[in-house]
Design a protein around this nucleic acid. Sequence first.
RNA 1: GCGGAAGUAGCUCAAUUGGUAGAGCGAUAGCCUUCCAAGCUAUAGGUUGCGGGUUCGAUCCUCGUCUUCCGCUCCA
Length: 488
Amino acid sequence: MSIQENKFQAIISHAKEYGFVFPSSEIYDGLSAVYDYGPNGSELKKNIRDYWWKSMTQLHDNIVGIDAAIFMHPTTWKASGHVDNFSDPMIDNKDSKKRYRVDHLIEAFADKLKEQGDEGEKKAGDLLAEMDQLLAKDDYAGLKQLIETNKISCGISGTCNWTEIRQFNLMFDTKLGSISEEADTIYLRPETAQGIFVNFLNVQKTARMKIPFGIAQTGKAFRNEIVARQFIFRMREFEQMEMQFFVRPGTQKEWYNFWKEERLKWHLSLGIAKEKYRFHDHAKLAHYADAALDIEYEFPFGFKEVEGIHSRTDFDLKNHQEYSKKKQQYFDNDLDENGKPYGNYIPYVVETSIGLDRMFLLILSEAYEEEMITKDDGTTDSRTVMHIPAKIAPTKLAILPLTKKDGLPEIATELMNDCKYSFKCFYEEKDAIGKRYRRQDAVGTPFCVTIDHQTKEDQTVTIRHRDSMLQERIPMSKVKEIVLAAIQ
RNA sequence: GCGGAAGUAGCUCAAUUGGUAGAGCGAUAGCCUUCCAAGCUAUAGGUUGCGGGUUCGAUCCUCGUCUUCCGCUCCA
Protein backbone atom coordinates (compact mmCIF):
# COMPACT_ATOMS: atom_id res chain seq x y z
CA MET A 1 0.00 0.00 0.00
CA SER A 2 2.69 2.48 0.93
CA ILE A 3 4.54 1.78 -2.33
CA GLN A 4 1.28 2.44 -4.13
CA GLU A 5 0.74 5.64 -2.17
CA ASN A 6 4.26 6.71 -3.06
CA LYS A 7 3.53 5.95 -6.68
CA PHE A 8 0.47 8.17 -6.52
CA GLN A 9 2.53 10.98 -4.98
CA ALA A 10 5.15 10.48 -7.69
CA ILE A 11 2.47 10.73 -10.39
CA ILE A 12 1.13 13.97 -8.91
CA SER A 13 4.65 15.46 -8.80
CA HIS A 14 5.39 14.27 -12.28
CA ALA A 15 2.13 15.72 -13.56
CA LYS A 16 3.09 19.11 -12.21
CA GLU A 17 6.74 19.02 -13.22
CA TYR A 18 6.00 18.16 -16.83
CA GLY A 19 3.07 20.48 -17.40
CA PHE A 20 0.17 18.07 -17.17
CA VAL A 21 -1.70 19.33 -14.09
CA PHE A 22 -1.17 22.37 -11.87
CA PRO A 23 -3.02 23.28 -8.68
CA SER A 24 -5.43 26.10 -9.51
CA SER A 25 -4.43 29.66 -8.60
CA GLU A 26 -1.23 28.31 -7.14
CA ILE A 27 0.41 31.73 -6.62
CA TYR A 28 -2.45 32.53 -4.24
CA ASP A 29 -1.91 29.27 -2.34
CA GLY A 30 -4.26 27.36 -4.55
CA LEU A 31 -7.98 26.75 -4.49
CA SER A 32 -9.00 23.55 -2.82
CA ALA A 33 -10.01 20.72 -5.15
CA VAL A 34 -9.59 22.76 -8.33
CA TYR A 35 -6.84 22.06 -10.84
CA ASP A 36 -5.59 23.48 -14.12
CA TYR A 37 -4.29 21.51 -17.06
CA GLY A 38 -0.91 22.55 -18.48
CA PRO A 39 0.45 22.33 -22.03
CA ASN A 40 0.85 18.54 -22.02
CA GLY A 41 -2.23 18.01 -19.89
CA SER A 42 -4.52 20.01 -22.12
CA GLU A 43 -3.30 18.07 -25.18
CA LEU A 44 -3.80 14.74 -23.46
CA LYS A 45 -7.21 15.71 -22.13
CA LYS A 46 -8.31 16.93 -25.53
CA ASN A 47 -7.06 13.73 -27.14
CA ILE A 48 -9.00 11.57 -24.67
CA ARG A 49 -12.09 13.66 -25.27
CA ASP A 50 -11.68 13.42 -29.05
CA TYR A 51 -11.12 9.69 -28.87
CA TRP A 52 -14.33 9.26 -26.89
CA TRP A 53 -16.28 11.63 -29.13
CA LYS A 54 -15.15 9.87 -32.25
CA SER A 55 -15.92 6.42 -30.88
CA MET A 56 -19.43 7.58 -29.97
CA THR A 57 -20.55 9.86 -32.78
CA GLN A 58 -18.47 8.58 -35.68
CA LEU A 59 -18.35 4.85 -35.06
CA HIS A 60 -22.03 4.62 -34.10
CA ASP A 61 -24.23 5.95 -36.85
CA ASN A 62 -27.19 6.19 -34.47
CA ILE A 63 -25.49 8.60 -32.08
CA VAL A 64 -25.26 12.35 -32.61
CA GLY A 65 -23.68 15.03 -30.48
CA ILE A 66 -24.79 18.29 -28.93
CA ASP A 67 -23.16 21.03 -26.91
CA ALA A 68 -25.72 22.33 -24.45
CA ALA A 69 -25.07 25.31 -22.18
CA ILE A 70 -23.92 25.04 -18.59
CA PHE A 71 -26.68 27.43 -17.50
CA MET A 72 -30.14 25.95 -17.67
CA HIS A 73 -33.60 27.07 -16.65
CA PRO A 74 -33.90 26.56 -12.87
CA THR A 75 -36.94 24.34 -13.26
CA THR A 76 -34.70 21.81 -14.98
CA TRP A 77 -33.23 20.90 -11.62
CA LYS A 78 -36.59 20.62 -9.94
CA ALA A 79 -37.71 18.22 -12.64
CA SER A 80 -34.52 16.21 -12.45
CA GLY A 81 -34.83 15.81 -8.71
CA HIS A 82 -31.55 17.52 -7.96
CA VAL A 83 -33.01 20.38 -5.96
CA ASP A 84 -34.65 17.95 -3.53
CA ASN A 85 -32.07 15.21 -3.50
CA PHE A 86 -28.97 17.30 -3.75
CA SER A 87 -29.02 19.00 -0.42
CA ASP A 88 -28.81 17.37 2.95
CA PRO A 89 -29.29 18.99 6.36
CA MET A 90 -26.33 18.13 8.60
CA ILE A 91 -25.64 18.45 12.29
CA ASP A 92 -22.43 18.14 14.33
CA ASN A 93 -21.95 16.88 17.85
CA LYS A 94 -19.78 19.43 19.64
CA ASP A 95 -18.14 16.89 21.95
CA SER A 96 -17.25 14.06 19.59
CA LYS A 97 -16.89 16.36 16.55
CA LYS A 98 -18.88 13.80 14.61
CA ARG A 99 -21.06 14.97 11.79
CA TYR A 100 -24.37 13.37 10.96
CA ARG A 101 -26.97 13.72 8.30
CA VAL A 102 -30.03 14.77 10.25
CA ASP A 103 -32.33 12.22 8.63
CA HIS A 104 -29.83 9.42 9.25
CA LEU A 105 -29.47 10.41 12.89
CA ILE A 106 -33.21 10.40 13.51
CA GLU A 107 -33.78 7.21 11.54
CA ALA A 108 -31.13 5.40 13.56
CA PHE A 109 -32.87 6.51 16.75
CA ALA A 110 -36.22 5.32 15.38
CA ASP A 111 -34.71 1.91 14.63
CA LYS A 112 -33.69 1.61 18.26
CA LEU A 113 -37.20 2.52 19.42
CA LYS A 114 -38.69 -0.16 17.21
CA GLU A 115 -36.74 -2.82 19.08
CA GLN A 116 -38.66 -1.89 22.26
CA GLY A 117 -41.92 -3.58 21.33
CA ASP A 118 -45.26 -2.22 20.13
CA GLU A 119 -45.13 1.02 22.01
CA GLY A 120 -41.68 1.81 20.66
CA GLU A 121 -42.86 0.88 17.18
CA LYS A 122 -45.64 3.46 17.42
CA LYS A 123 -43.30 6.14 18.78
CA ALA A 124 -40.86 5.51 15.99
CA GLY A 125 -43.61 5.85 13.40
CA ASP A 126 -44.75 9.18 14.85
CA LEU A 127 -41.21 10.42 15.03
CA LEU A 128 -40.45 9.59 11.41
CA ALA A 129 -43.70 11.13 10.23
CA GLU A 130 -42.90 14.34 12.06
CA MET A 131 -39.37 14.32 10.66
CA ASP A 132 -40.64 13.96 7.10
CA GLN A 133 -42.98 16.90 7.59
CA LEU A 134 -40.21 19.09 8.94
CA LEU A 135 -37.80 18.03 6.23
CA ALA A 136 -40.35 18.87 3.57
CA LYS A 137 -40.71 22.36 5.01
CA ASP A 138 -36.93 22.79 5.46
CA ASP A 139 -37.73 23.59 9.07
CA TYR A 140 -34.29 23.20 10.63
CA ALA A 141 -35.21 24.78 13.95
CA GLY A 142 -38.06 22.30 14.22
CA LEU A 143 -35.78 19.41 13.39
CA LYS A 144 -33.31 20.44 16.07
CA GLN A 145 -36.17 20.75 18.52
CA LEU A 146 -37.23 17.24 17.54
CA ILE A 147 -33.75 15.91 18.24
CA GLU A 148 -33.60 17.65 21.60
CA THR A 149 -37.05 16.66 22.88
CA ASN A 150 -36.34 13.03 22.02
CA LYS A 151 -32.92 13.31 23.68
CA ILE A 152 -31.25 11.81 20.65
CA SER A 153 -27.58 11.54 21.52
CA CYS A 154 -24.35 11.03 19.68
CA GLY A 155 -23.20 7.43 19.49
CA ILE A 156 -19.61 8.38 20.24
CA SER A 157 -19.81 11.01 22.95
CA GLY A 158 -23.24 10.06 24.26
CA THR A 159 -24.14 13.74 24.65
CA CYS A 160 -26.87 15.89 23.16
CA ASN A 161 -24.57 18.86 22.69
CA TRP A 162 -25.45 19.65 19.08
CA THR A 163 -24.61 22.50 16.72
CA GLU A 164 -27.26 24.25 14.68
CA ILE A 165 -28.47 22.30 11.65
CA ARG A 166 -26.76 23.41 8.48
CA GLN A 167 -27.67 22.86 4.89
CA PHE A 168 -25.09 21.48 2.52
CA ASN A 169 -26.20 22.33 -0.96
CA LEU A 170 -24.29 20.28 -3.42
CA MET A 171 -25.21 22.45 -6.41
CA PHE A 172 -23.44 25.77 -7.01
CA ASP A 173 -25.74 28.66 -7.65
CA THR A 174 -25.23 32.05 -9.22
CA LYS A 175 -27.30 34.98 -10.33
CA LEU A 176 -28.59 35.53 -13.83
CA GLY A 177 -29.02 39.22 -14.53
CA SER A 178 -26.84 42.14 -13.55
CA ILE A 179 -28.92 43.65 -10.74
CA SER A 180 -28.68 41.07 -8.03
CA GLU A 181 -31.90 41.88 -6.19
CA GLU A 182 -33.92 41.38 -9.34
CA ALA A 183 -31.85 38.46 -10.57
CA ASP A 184 -32.95 34.87 -10.61
CA THR A 185 -30.91 32.18 -8.96
CA ILE A 186 -29.69 29.65 -11.43
CA TYR A 187 -27.44 26.65 -10.93
CA LEU A 188 -24.24 25.52 -12.55
CA ARG A 189 -25.21 22.12 -13.91
CA PRO A 190 -24.23 19.18 -11.69
CA GLU A 191 -24.44 16.85 -14.69
CA THR A 192 -24.51 17.37 -18.44
CA ALA A 193 -27.31 14.84 -18.93
CA GLN A 194 -30.16 17.32 -18.45
CA GLY A 195 -28.97 19.37 -21.41
CA ILE A 196 -29.51 16.26 -23.48
CA PHE A 197 -32.95 15.49 -22.04
CA VAL A 198 -34.37 18.96 -22.57
CA ASN A 199 -33.14 18.83 -26.16
CA PHE A 200 -34.42 15.35 -26.79
CA LEU A 201 -37.13 16.33 -29.30
CA ASN A 202 -35.04 19.07 -30.92
CA VAL A 203 -32.35 16.56 -31.72
CA GLN A 204 -34.68 13.73 -32.62
CA LYS A 205 -36.56 15.87 -35.12
CA THR A 206 -33.75 17.90 -36.66
CA ALA A 207 -31.34 15.00 -37.03
CA ARG A 208 -34.26 12.72 -38.03
CA MET A 209 -33.29 10.09 -35.49
CA LYS A 210 -35.21 6.87 -34.99
CA ILE A 211 -35.28 4.99 -31.73
CA PRO A 212 -33.02 3.46 -30.61
CA PHE A 213 -30.58 6.37 -30.84
CA GLY A 214 -28.16 8.25 -28.66
CA ILE A 215 -27.11 11.84 -27.93
CA ALA A 216 -23.57 12.48 -26.80
CA GLN A 217 -22.15 15.48 -25.01
CA THR A 218 -18.94 16.48 -23.28
CA GLY A 219 -18.63 19.40 -20.93
CA LYS A 220 -18.01 20.85 -17.53
CA ALA A 221 -20.19 20.07 -14.54
CA PHE A 222 -20.00 21.36 -10.98
CA ARG A 223 -20.61 19.75 -7.61
CA ASN A 224 -19.98 21.31 -4.26
CA GLU A 225 -18.35 18.26 -2.71
CA ILE A 226 -17.92 18.47 1.03
CA VAL A 227 -14.62 16.69 0.83
CA ALA A 228 -12.86 16.72 -2.49
CA ARG A 229 -9.52 15.02 -2.46
CA GLN A 230 -7.29 12.58 -4.26
CA PHE A 231 -5.91 15.01 -6.79
CA ILE A 232 -8.10 15.33 -9.88
CA PHE A 233 -10.19 12.29 -8.94
CA ARG A 234 -12.79 14.32 -7.11
CA MET A 235 -12.96 17.95 -8.11
CA ARG A 236 -15.59 20.64 -7.69
CA GLU A 237 -15.33 21.55 -11.35
CA PHE A 238 -14.94 18.59 -13.64
CA GLU A 239 -15.70 17.41 -17.13
CA GLN A 240 -18.08 14.67 -18.11
CA MET A 241 -18.46 12.69 -21.30
CA GLU A 242 -22.03 11.48 -21.38
CA MET A 243 -24.21 9.65 -23.82
CA GLN A 244 -27.93 9.15 -23.32
CA PHE A 245 -29.34 6.32 -25.36
CA PHE A 246 -33.09 6.43 -25.98
CA VAL A 247 -34.81 3.08 -26.28
CA ARG A 248 -38.24 1.52 -26.52
CA PRO A 249 -39.72 0.76 -23.08
CA GLY A 250 -39.11 -2.85 -22.14
CA THR A 251 -35.82 -3.07 -24.04
CA GLN A 252 -33.78 -1.11 -21.54
CA LYS A 253 -32.23 -4.16 -19.90
CA GLU A 254 -30.89 -5.45 -23.19
CA TRP A 255 -29.37 -2.04 -24.07
CA TYR A 256 -28.00 -1.67 -20.58
CA ASN A 257 -26.07 -4.91 -21.08
CA PHE A 258 -25.04 -3.84 -24.57
CA TRP A 259 -23.52 -0.58 -23.33
CA LYS A 260 -21.90 -2.26 -20.38
CA GLU A 261 -19.88 -4.45 -22.74
CA GLU A 262 -19.41 -1.77 -25.37
CA ARG A 263 -17.95 0.70 -22.92
CA LEU A 264 -15.56 -1.84 -21.44
CA LYS A 265 -14.37 -2.58 -24.98
CA TRP A 266 -13.62 1.10 -25.43
CA HIS A 267 -11.41 1.09 -22.34
CA LEU A 268 -9.62 -2.04 -23.46
CA SER A 269 -9.07 -0.54 -26.92
CA LEU A 270 -6.54 1.76 -25.28
CA GLY A 271 -4.43 -1.28 -24.52
CA ILE A 272 -5.15 -1.32 -20.81
CA ALA A 273 -5.07 -4.71 -19.10
CA LYS A 274 -8.46 -6.28 -18.45
CA GLU A 275 -7.40 -7.21 -14.91
CA LYS A 276 -7.29 -3.52 -14.01
CA TYR A 277 -11.02 -3.23 -14.56
CA ARG A 278 -14.07 -4.57 -12.81
CA PHE A 279 -17.81 -3.95 -12.77
CA HIS A 280 -19.51 -2.87 -9.59
CA ASP A 281 -23.28 -3.25 -9.48
CA HIS A 282 -25.16 -0.70 -7.39
CA ALA A 283 -27.31 -2.24 -4.72
CA LYS A 284 -28.73 1.11 -3.64
CA LEU A 285 -30.08 2.90 -6.68
CA ALA A 286 -30.31 6.60 -7.34
CA HIS A 287 -33.74 8.19 -7.50
CA TYR A 288 -33.90 7.92 -11.29
CA ALA A 289 -32.49 4.45 -11.99
CA ASP A 290 -33.77 0.88 -12.28
CA ALA A 291 -30.26 -0.54 -12.72
CA ALA A 292 -26.81 0.92 -12.34
CA LEU A 293 -23.20 -0.15 -12.36
CA ASP A 294 -19.78 1.39 -12.24
CA ILE A 295 -16.83 0.52 -14.36
CA GLU A 296 -14.02 0.62 -11.84
CA TYR A 297 -10.30 0.86 -12.49
CA GLU A 298 -7.57 -0.09 -10.07
CA PHE A 299 -6.00 3.28 -9.30
CA PRO A 300 -2.90 3.45 -7.09
CA PHE A 301 -5.34 4.15 -4.24
CA GLY A 302 -7.62 1.22 -5.01
CA PHE A 303 -10.50 0.29 -7.33
CA LYS A 304 -12.54 3.41 -8.04
CA GLU A 305 -15.33 4.44 -10.38
CA VAL A 306 -14.31 5.84 -13.76
CA GLU A 307 -17.56 5.42 -15.61
CA GLY A 308 -21.17 4.73 -14.74
CA ILE A 309 -23.79 2.89 -16.78
CA HIS A 310 -27.30 3.75 -15.60
CA SER A 311 -30.66 2.58 -16.73
CA ARG A 312 -32.50 5.85 -16.05
CA THR A 313 -35.95 4.62 -17.09
CA ASP A 314 -38.27 7.36 -18.36
CA PHE A 315 -37.79 9.31 -15.14
CA ASP A 316 -36.16 12.40 -16.64
CA LEU A 317 -38.26 12.80 -19.78
CA LYS A 318 -41.46 12.09 -17.86
CA ASN A 319 -40.62 14.73 -15.28
CA HIS A 320 -39.63 17.28 -17.91
CA GLN A 321 -42.94 16.63 -19.61
CA GLU A 322 -44.76 17.21 -16.34
CA TYR A 323 -42.86 20.39 -15.36
CA SER A 324 -42.72 21.93 -18.82
CA LYS A 325 -46.19 20.84 -19.91
CA LYS A 326 -44.61 19.91 -23.24
CA LYS A 327 -45.12 16.41 -24.54
CA GLN A 328 -41.89 14.42 -24.67
CA GLN A 329 -43.35 11.58 -26.67
CA TYR A 330 -41.92 9.76 -29.62
CA PHE A 331 -44.03 8.10 -32.28
CA ASP A 332 -42.59 4.71 -33.14
CA ASN A 333 -43.54 3.53 -36.64
CA ASP A 334 -41.95 0.13 -36.24
CA LEU A 335 -44.41 -2.72 -36.12
CA ASP A 336 -44.91 -4.90 -33.05
CA GLU A 337 -45.61 -8.65 -33.11
CA ASN A 338 -49.25 -7.92 -34.00
CA GLY A 339 -48.25 -5.92 -37.06
CA LYS A 340 -49.24 -2.60 -35.49
CA PRO A 341 -46.99 0.41 -34.92
CA TYR A 342 -45.62 0.72 -31.40
CA GLY A 343 -47.07 4.24 -31.42
CA ASN A 344 -46.53 7.03 -28.91
CA TYR A 345 -44.42 6.59 -25.83
CA ILE A 346 -41.86 8.32 -23.66
CA PRO A 347 -38.58 6.55 -24.34
CA TYR A 348 -36.50 4.84 -21.70
CA VAL A 349 -32.91 5.94 -21.34
CA VAL A 350 -29.64 4.10 -20.83
CA GLU A 351 -26.83 6.43 -19.83
CA THR A 352 -23.10 6.03 -20.14
CA SER A 353 -21.28 8.69 -18.15
CA ILE A 354 -17.52 8.85 -17.87
CA GLY A 355 -15.45 11.42 -16.00
CA LEU A 356 -12.91 12.92 -18.37
CA ASP A 357 -10.65 13.96 -15.51
CA ARG A 358 -10.85 10.50 -14.02
CA MET A 359 -10.02 8.96 -17.37
CA PHE A 360 -7.07 11.34 -17.55
CA LEU A 361 -5.90 10.19 -14.13
CA LEU A 362 -6.43 6.60 -15.22
CA ILE A 363 -4.14 7.15 -18.20
CA LEU A 364 -1.49 8.78 -16.01
CA SER A 365 -1.69 5.94 -13.48
CA GLU A 366 -1.49 3.32 -16.18
CA ALA A 367 1.29 5.06 -18.11
CA TYR A 368 3.65 6.11 -15.36
CA GLU A 369 6.69 3.92 -14.84
CA GLU A 370 10.03 4.34 -13.17
CA GLU A 371 12.05 1.85 -15.10
CA MET A 372 15.40 0.29 -14.18
CA ILE A 373 17.48 -0.48 -17.22
CA THR A 374 20.80 -2.27 -17.56
CA LYS A 375 23.11 -0.66 -20.05
CA ASP A 376 25.49 -2.41 -22.43
CA ASP A 377 28.43 -1.92 -20.08
CA GLY A 378 26.52 -3.58 -17.24
CA THR A 379 25.79 -0.46 -15.24
CA THR A 380 22.22 0.24 -14.27
CA ASP A 381 20.25 3.33 -15.05
CA SER A 382 16.72 4.53 -14.45
CA ARG A 383 14.27 6.36 -16.61
CA THR A 384 10.84 7.76 -15.97
CA VAL A 385 8.60 6.97 -18.87
CA MET A 386 4.94 7.62 -19.61
CA HIS A 387 3.57 4.75 -21.68
CA ILE A 388 0.68 6.83 -22.97
CA PRO A 389 -1.11 5.08 -25.84
CA ALA A 390 0.20 6.64 -29.07
CA LYS A 391 -3.25 7.68 -30.27
CA ILE A 392 -3.81 9.96 -27.27
CA ALA A 393 -0.23 11.02 -26.48
CA PRO A 394 0.18 14.82 -26.20
CA THR A 395 3.03 14.87 -28.71
CA LYS A 396 3.33 12.16 -31.34
CA LEU A 397 6.76 12.80 -32.76
CA ALA A 398 9.94 14.51 -31.59
CA ILE A 399 12.27 15.62 -34.34
CA LEU A 400 15.87 15.84 -33.19
CA PRO A 401 18.87 16.85 -35.26
CA LEU A 402 21.90 15.07 -33.82
CA THR A 403 23.88 18.31 -33.87
CA LYS A 404 22.90 21.90 -34.54
CA LYS A 405 25.45 22.33 -37.31
CA ASP A 406 26.23 20.96 -40.74
CA GLY A 407 22.76 21.58 -42.11
CA LEU A 408 21.05 19.01 -39.87
CA PRO A 409 18.58 21.50 -38.32
CA GLU A 410 17.52 22.52 -41.84
CA ILE A 411 16.66 18.94 -42.76
CA ALA A 412 14.86 18.49 -39.43
CA THR A 413 12.82 21.63 -40.02
CA GLU A 414 11.82 20.31 -43.40
CA LEU A 415 10.52 17.11 -41.80
CA MET A 416 8.79 19.15 -39.12
CA ASN A 417 6.97 21.22 -41.73
CA ASP A 418 5.94 18.08 -43.53
CA CYS A 419 4.49 16.41 -40.42
CA LYS A 420 3.04 19.20 -38.32
CA TYR A 421 -0.20 19.43 -40.26
CA SER A 422 -0.93 15.77 -39.55
CA PHE A 423 -0.08 15.46 -35.86
CA LYS A 424 1.58 17.26 -32.97
CA CYS A 425 5.36 17.41 -33.34
CA PHE A 426 8.13 18.72 -31.13
CA TYR A 427 11.49 20.02 -32.29
CA GLU A 428 14.63 20.23 -30.19
CA GLU A 429 18.32 20.63 -30.96
CA LYS A 430 19.66 21.24 -27.48
CA ASP A 431 21.68 18.84 -25.27
CA ALA A 432 22.95 15.30 -25.84
CA ILE A 433 20.66 13.02 -27.77
CA GLY A 434 20.17 10.65 -24.84
CA LYS A 435 18.97 13.46 -22.66
CA ARG A 436 16.50 14.56 -25.29
CA TYR A 437 15.15 11.01 -25.54
CA ARG A 438 14.61 10.89 -21.80
CA ARG A 439 12.76 14.18 -21.79
CA GLN A 440 10.40 12.82 -24.45
CA ASP A 441 9.92 9.62 -22.43
CA ALA A 442 8.86 11.72 -19.46
CA VAL A 443 6.01 13.33 -21.41
CA GLY A 444 5.02 10.18 -23.26
CA THR A 445 6.06 10.99 -26.84
CA PRO A 446 5.88 7.62 -28.62
CA PHE A 447 8.37 8.36 -31.41
CA CYS A 448 11.64 10.24 -31.74
CA VAL A 449 13.37 10.73 -35.05
CA THR A 450 17.04 11.69 -35.21
CA ILE A 451 18.60 13.36 -38.22
CA ASP A 452 22.34 12.69 -38.50
CA HIS A 453 25.12 13.07 -41.06
CA GLN A 454 24.08 9.89 -42.85
CA THR A 455 20.72 11.53 -43.53
CA LYS A 456 22.51 13.89 -45.88
CA GLU A 457 23.93 10.93 -47.81
CA ASP A 458 20.91 8.65 -48.15
CA GLN A 459 17.86 10.44 -46.68
CA THR A 460 17.45 7.89 -43.87
CA VAL A 461 16.82 8.70 -40.22
CA THR A 462 16.80 6.81 -36.95
CA ILE A 463 13.36 6.28 -35.45
CA ARG A 464 13.36 5.42 -31.78
CA HIS A 465 10.44 3.74 -30.04
CA ARG A 466 9.53 4.97 -26.57
CA ASP A 467 8.45 1.75 -24.87
CA SER A 468 11.11 -0.64 -26.20
CA MET A 469 13.82 2.01 -26.69
CA LEU A 470 14.61 0.19 -29.92
CA GLN A 471 15.95 2.14 -32.89
CA GLU A 472 15.69 1.47 -36.55
CA ARG A 473 16.99 3.10 -39.67
CA ILE A 474 14.22 4.12 -42.05
CA PRO A 475 13.83 6.41 -45.05
CA MET A 476 12.86 9.91 -43.92
CA SER A 477 9.97 9.83 -46.38
CA LYS A 478 8.37 6.99 -44.37
CA VAL A 479 8.27 8.81 -41.01
CA LYS A 480 4.88 10.41 -41.46
CA GLU A 481 3.09 7.23 -42.48
CA ILE A 482 4.66 5.20 -39.68
CA VAL A 483 3.46 7.68 -37.08
CA LEU A 484 0.05 8.01 -38.70
CA ALA A 485 -0.35 4.23 -38.72
CA ALA A 486 0.43 4.08 -35.01
CA ILE A 487 -2.00 6.80 -33.95
CA GLN A 488 -5.06 5.70 -35.88
C1' G B 1 -15.75 21.00 8.74
C1' C B 2 -12.94 18.13 12.97
C1' G B 3 -8.20 15.71 14.69
C1' G B 4 -2.89 14.70 13.54
C1' A B 5 1.65 15.85 10.59
C1' A B 6 4.22 18.99 7.30
C1' G B 7 5.55 23.73 4.50
C1' U B 8 13.31 26.61 2.97
C1' A B 9 15.32 27.88 -5.08
C1' G B 10 11.38 24.50 -10.39
C1' C B 11 12.70 19.41 -7.67
C1' U B 12 15.36 16.67 -3.48
C1' C B 13 17.31 18.38 0.84
C1' A B 14 21.19 21.36 4.22
C1' A B 15 21.93 25.55 7.72
C1' U B 16 25.43 24.32 15.57
C1' U B 17 22.05 26.22 22.15
C1' G B 18 18.19 31.89 17.93
C1' G B 19 23.37 35.30 14.71
C1' U B 20 19.86 38.27 8.41
C1' A B 21 20.31 30.96 3.65
C1' G B 22 23.78 26.75 0.83
C1' A B 23 24.44 22.17 -2.25
C1' G B 24 23.07 18.62 -5.95
C1' C B 25 19.83 18.00 -9.87
C1' G B 26 16.91 20.92 -13.15
C1' A B 27 16.40 25.56 -16.21
C1' U B 28 18.65 29.35 -19.53
C1' A B 29 23.00 30.96 -22.75
C1' G B 30 27.53 29.28 -24.80
C1' C B 31 31.54 25.42 -25.76
C1' C B 32 31.95 20.23 -27.42
C1' U B 33 29.36 17.41 -32.19
C1' U B 34 28.45 12.92 -29.35
C1' C B 35 22.43 7.69 -30.99
C1' C B 36 19.97 6.61 -24.76
C1' A B 37 20.11 11.41 -18.43
C1' A B 38 24.49 13.02 -14.69
C1' G B 39 31.77 16.44 -20.07
C1' C B 40 33.25 22.14 -19.68
C1' U B 41 32.02 27.56 -18.72
C1' A B 42 28.71 31.25 -17.29
C1' U B 43 23.91 33.10 -15.64
C1' A B 44 19.27 33.41 -13.41
C1' G B 45 16.31 31.84 -9.39
C1' G B 46 14.52 32.65 -2.07
C1' U B 47 10.79 38.96 1.96
C1' U B 48 12.49 30.64 4.54
C1' G B 49 3.81 29.69 2.79
C1' C B 50 1.52 34.40 4.78
C1' G B 51 0.62 37.82 9.11
C1' G B 52 1.36 39.18 14.21
C1' G B 53 4.28 38.40 19.01
C1' U B 54 8.88 37.56 22.16
C1' U B 55 14.11 39.19 21.22
C1' C B 56 19.51 43.61 20.01
C1' G B 57 18.58 39.78 16.29
C1' A B 58 13.75 34.51 14.21
C1' U B 59 14.25 29.36 8.95
C1' C B 60 14.64 28.00 14.39
C1' C B 61 10.55 29.97 20.02
C1' U B 62 5.14 31.46 20.23
C1' C B 63 0.01 32.72 18.35
C1' G B 64 -3.11 33.15 14.20
C1' U B 65 -3.99 32.06 9.15
C1' C B 66 -3.46 29.52 4.32
C1' U B 67 -2.12 25.19 1.64
C1' U B 68 -0.86 20.01 1.25
C1' C B 69 -0.84 14.94 3.15
C1' C B 70 -3.15 11.08 6.58
C1' G B 71 -7.66 9.65 9.35
C1' C B 72 -13.07 10.80 10.15
C1' U B 73 -17.90 13.01 8.22
C1' C B 74 -20.71 13.68 2.81
C1' C B 75 -20.82 11.94 -2.31
C1' A B 76 -27.57 11.84 -6.12
